[in-house]
Nucleic acid binder design. Structure first.
Lengths: 153, 153
DNA sequence: TGTTGATCTAAAGTTCACTTTAGATATTAA
DNA sequence: TTAATATCTAAAGTGAACTTTAGATCAACA
């Protein structure tokens, strides 16, 4: 396959700061590649450390493991991902970060507008979630910070 | 108690864009106040709509329902929260938003530094999580984006 | 008055993301 | 070689945040 050095599950666990059971779980979930020794133990290309790190960050960003699996499928299976493979992936990722930051900024001003100053107008206060999975988990539209329009007269 | 208009569970559900079961759940979880009609139905002060909205936003920010319960306990039990009650709460909240934005910006530059440009140095790439609950769920330190120092020679 | 539709309860079920358990086999270090 | 440590599997358990189910009661209106 590749000349990449192979590492044990314990090594990966320690290096990424996680439990061995988690690494095994990710392996079983097809999130990280591995091969077996003659004895049956999993061994991993060293690059899975990077991959696990990516998974953790993506989770922190609100991606589910399923979505992460999709994302990682853009990486090559047969060879060790190169810098440019990762770079491509991280560009997508960066967009999400930007999006999320924008969202939080919006939230901030909404809070200021709706709660802070006491403006209760529906127009200004109601934030409509437009299908952004990262914004609000779960399906369907949700009205945020929307108090009743009755107060609005 | 108060002269605030009372609304049904279905009304709250519709107004906040959620299932009735969720509103009932939050009520049972002591996240939103309610009283009973003679017949046994829950009725809510209209202000719970605002409260529910707050819960949804806070969840989106990464707070657990437990933490949200804590946050909401700073609101008055006996009277309808005033603008300044909410304002106080939203200040705390705003700090978290700021924090989170800062964190995402850090993540962005780390991604640029570690993945984008191919710098694999451990010093630059490893992000140590310092107990920030919002940053990374789960206990203990996690090393993010940390690939091996061996490549660093 | 009847009949829809809303609400009730308690308990069980669901999904996600893991961890734990138990007993077996492998690998490494002394 | 022996003992300690690491890893294996399959299955069950966990906790958070809900939803679903079933059967009963309540409320609104034609």
């Amino acid at each position: 396959m590749s000349q990449e050095p192979l590492v044990s599950i314990g090594f990966v666990a320690k290096r990424t700061g996680n439990a061995v059971s988690l690494i095994r779980y990710y392996a079983n979930q097809q999130l990280i590649p591995f091969i077996r020794t003659q004895g049956g133990s999993r061994v991993f290309p060293r690059s899975v450390i990077r991959r696990v790190s990516f998974i953790l960050i993506a989770q922190n960003m609100g991606y589910s493991l399923d979505e992460i699996r999709q994302l990682l499928h853009t990486l090559p299976d047969k060879r060790t991902p190169t810098k440019s493979d990762w770079a491509k992936l991280s560009r997508v990722f960066n967009q999400r970060i930007e999006q999320r930051i924008a969202q939080l900024n919006e939230l901030k001003s909404s809070l200021a507008g709706c709660i802070g100053c006491g403006c209760l107008s529906l127009d200004k206060c109601r934030l409509y979630n437009k299908e952004d999975k990262m914004a609000v988990k779960g399906p369907g539209a949700r009205y945020l910070l929307g108090d009743t329009p009755i107060l609005h007269k």
